[in-house]
Design a protein around this nucleic acid. Sequence first.
RNA 1: GGCCCCGUGGUCUAGCGGUUAGGACACCACCCUUUCACGGUGGUAACAUGGGUUCGAGUCCCGUCGGGGUCACCA
Length: 518
Amino acid sequence: MTSWRSQVRSLLIPPILLFLLSEIRGENNLADIRVRFAPSPTGYLHIGGARTALFNWLFARHNDGRFILRIEDTDRERLKEDSVEQIISSMRWLGLDWDEGPDVGGDYGPYFQSQRLGIYLKEIRRLLDEDKAYYCYCTQQELEQRRQQAVKEGKAPRYDGRCRNLTVEEQQSLREQGRNPVVRLKVPTKGVTVVEDVIRGTVTFDNALLDDFIIQKSDGMPTYNFVCAVDDHAMEISHVIRAEEHLSNTPKQLLVYRALGYNAPVFAHVPMILAPDRSKLSKRHGATSVEEFRDQGYLPEAIVNYLALLGWSPEGDQEMISMEECAKQFDLAKVSKNAAIYDTKKLTWLNGNYIRSIDIDRLVDLSIPFMRQKGLLPEQISPDMRDYLKRVVAAVRERTRTLVELADACSYFLTDDFEFDEAGVKKHFLKEGVAELLEKGRSVLQRLDKFDAASTEAAYRALIDELGIKGADIIHPTRLAISGRTVGPGLFDMMELLGKEKTLDRMARAIEYIKKLA
RNA sequence: GGCCCCGUGGUCUAGCGGUUAGGACACCACCCUUUCACGGUGGUAACAUGGGUUCGAGUCCCGUCGGGGUCACCA
């Protein structure tokens, strides 16, 4: 929109009026909060990116602003197939919806940088014409050589600016050698560039340490630090909220802003998320992508909750907090400065809390794919089956922390095909007289008409009294007999869920098994 | 290596000159209990370090050390 707006302006409005107009409007009207998440499609959305996206989202929602998704795909070499789709689906899954972006559109599009080339080229042309940028004919090999030389001499590997003042003739002859030039920005050699960062405060960079960096590659593609500034301006981004690794890029972008005559947005560099070994997140650290966490049975609300707590904290001692509540409370100034190491343990704890507290029907829906994966479910789920699943899930949710664990905890309710837990066999089946005990238990159960938890428990308690044994003496072996496990829901709840027939069958089977053990 | 950022228990954090340094995860113990969880109670455990400033410093300043980031025709 800025592009057409400025085009229209420059066509129709005399310069003096234009000046007044921009004064009145203010390029940086803070009343219009616009933030963006700008991933490059080189892979999955990892939790660091997700957290950056989340903070942008929270800030936008808190301020009733707009959240924009922009795809930074100017490097076609590193572009990965399906990556955009992956990122989009991960964000949607987490509930991070955007107001403008690919697939939803918006007034400031296109939202793929690869489709915005015209805008960049125009601005590069302008800088060239205004003598704020110049062509550089040095080849990559030459630059690499000089860089290595500098490093060897212990000097900073900076571009020496040798092409800054080439004459037309010199340029002509270099072109005739078949050299494709890059475009470099003329960076002031003196003074400082100051970044005002909401999170970090005032950060000062010495211009002398910067070099004339490349804004357009020899293949004609503009570079990141350039397009980023151009787009943030063109899309009227008010606040740039991104990871701290970009802090040292910021002076470069500020220089682009200055050269182009733009007003700068407000910057906020959020701390990085580090792997448990304190290094930058990568695949070798195991699950780091949102998709992997999803596949491990984590709920989106747990991940969002966890990520929000990493580097930010709500009022009071609240740990469980919804996205909406986060948005209500979110404040950039309260974002921590130090990098955080992510710890799956707390995520898992949160996830367990959510598994226990979300709506049961939703929990069933969420766990069905995980049960399917274990081959526990038929193609079609009948209403009766669904009802049964609901009761099973309700019984086991208390003691599971991920959907994978949940599906596992459901398994013996859905299949007769299970082994007896090895340690459990040693502990409960090898005891003297267990088979007989189970026989007795089985026969009192067999006489029951009603087979709900209360009835089976009453029957068992009567037997326990009669035999003068401890409840645990028969309860543990029975549990192992009907579930194959030593842990799980209350025994009588299990019986009720399984029903009389299965309970008795499994007990009979266990009795046979025990007899063979002897 | 230069530049930049950061430094409260193992981990995430609260703290914004005067606190017995609070909470959460994890860990340990006990209680509840048919198991496992949940829940409850209690516990172990931190201001990196050395100088300043101040009546008084986790909080402010400087040095040191440690960690991270960045120095590309990647983003």
